[in-house]
Each structure stands twice: as structure tokens, then as C-alpha cells.
Amino acid sequence: MTVARPGSHPSPKRKRGSGSAPTVEALAGASGSDRSAARAEARGSSWNPNIIVFACNWCSYAGADTAGVSRVQHQPHFRMIRVMCSGRIQPGFVLRAFEKGADGVLVSGCHIGDCHYVFGNERALEQFEKTKNIVKLLGLEEGRLRLEWISAAEGARFAEVINEFTDQVRALGPSPLANSDQLSAVSYQRSAKAARLRAES
């Protein structure tokens, strides 16, 4: 899996709605929290969600690229995890994201019939249904999880889905599991060490 930021962050120079837009220099010196605060202010809200987007290599990830190169503006409060096929996205991925405090999770893949692996996205759909039911049992709001099919050509649609989903999750507020991130820090160190040990053996 590759963790990547989509190449579509709104350029600070172009930000609208504020007469005194911060300069590039000021932003470069600003800490991460200052920056997200600036963005939140621009959206008229004090809080920005943390969203995890799972995207397949062949359609949705390329769709995000299309949005980026076409300079379609969209909200930047998500991290993308690229997988080869949406069929790879099993309940464990999504549940782990929520466990570690993600406020929303978006699962995306090729449209049904367009899968690069023929039926991978049908499997993704099955896995998603199962995941959704587990999330419901756990008592998380259903609105925090969404499945969308986005093709490589649908840059504008990618931006639209992201904006809509970000607003939806923002309206729900922080995930009830987001407050104690102590745990995730510990288990991150743990999995890093486990991976190292495995590589050495």
C-alpha cells in the first residue's frame, strides 16, 4: 500500500474569501495546526475531520489525479491509501482506520463492469456491506462510511464526492473514537517494530 497525498491541495495563493490571504512564505513557516486552522476558518468551521480514502490504482486514484491536474478545487482533509483493487479493501482496513480515530472512511473503486480485475469491485461491494454492518453494531454513525465508484476520467466527480463527504462528516463532528490517540501511537510503534523483527528474521 502506498500512502500518498493527492496532488490537488488548493494553492494558498488562490484561496478565496479572505482579503488577507497568507503568503507562501508565511505558510511555509507556519506549523501544521496553524495551517489547518487557516483552512477551517476559510470554511467557516473550527474543526476539520480526518478522513481516510481508500482508492484503487486504476480508477479512483487516477480520478483523484485527474481532479488534481485539472485543478478542480476540493477540501484537503483526507489522506489517500492506494490499493491495487477495491477488492483488496477488507473490513480490517476500515475498522482499523476507525479504531485509530478516523472521523470518516471513503472506499472507492472502478464502476461495476469496469474493474481492471474483472470482478474485484463486486467483491469490494460484498466486503463493504459486511463492514457497514459491523460499524453499525459498534455504534458509529453510518454517515462516517461511504462507498463510491469513481472512474479515472471523473475528476470533477471525485472533487464533488470529497466535498460532499467532508461536509457530511464535519456535520457529524469528531468520531467518538478519536479522543484517545494514545493507543494508536503505541500500536503504531508496535507494528513498526513487529515489521522490523519480521524483516530481520
Partner: peptide, 8 residues
Amino acid sequence: HGGALQSV
């Protein structure tokens, strides 16, 4: 099961 049950 991809650690799903442990996550739960």
C-alpha cells in the same frame, strides 16, 4: 481476517 476482529 485482516485483524478486523482484533480491531473490533
